[in-house]
């Protein structure tokens, strides 16, 4: 069973995304802030992380950096999910260490494609 960690502070989006991915057979664990996200990543070592960028306590960029800096979690692929669509936002996410990037609103087929591509590696 593939475990995906979703870090997202918007309850509706979190709920919706969790349910849609669960329907496709992924085990979902969720966190609503960056700090919790890092903690879950370290404790559960998910196969992939979907990381919102605007997060409370620790934002997505910093959380990504920390996850990637930690020996146990450094290998976990991270897809940045953001409603920011400026080119600079994409660059910022990749610089922070994200493996891929997708914008909200989520286009489920596109996102699934990206998830599967990263899991294959």
């Amino acid at each position: 069973m593939i475990t995906i960690l979703i870090v997202e502070d918007n309850e509706m989006n979190l709920d919706m995304l969790s349910r849609r991915l669960s329907r496709r057979g992924y085990e979902i664990i969720t966190a609503m802030d960056g700090e919790k996200g890092i903690e879950l990543a370290i404790n559960h070592l998910p196969h992939l992380i979907l990381m919102d960028m605007s997060l409370p306590i620790i934002d997505g960029w910093e959380a990504t950096q920390k996850v990637k800096a930690h020996q146990a979690t450094a290998h976990i692929p991270i897809i940045a999910l953001t409603a920011h669509v400026m080119e600079s936002d994409r660059q910022k996410a990749l610089i922070a260490g994200c493996d891929d990037y997708d914008t909200k609103p989520i286009e489920i087929e596109r996102l699934l494609g990206k998830i599967q591509a990263l899991l294959k590696q």
């Binding site: 918007n10 919706m16 849609r20 329907r23 409603a83 920011h84 669509v85 914008t103």
Partner: peptide, 25 residues
């Protein structure tokens, strides 16, 4: 622009996402 984009996209995400999910269900 950035804020507006962000603020509009977040609820749009829910609208489209839930409708698609409900369609699937």
């Amino acid at each position: 622009l950035a804020n507006m984009s962000h603020e509009l996209r977040t609820p749009m995400n829910a609208i489209i996402g839930y409708s698609e999910m409900l369609l699937e269900e």
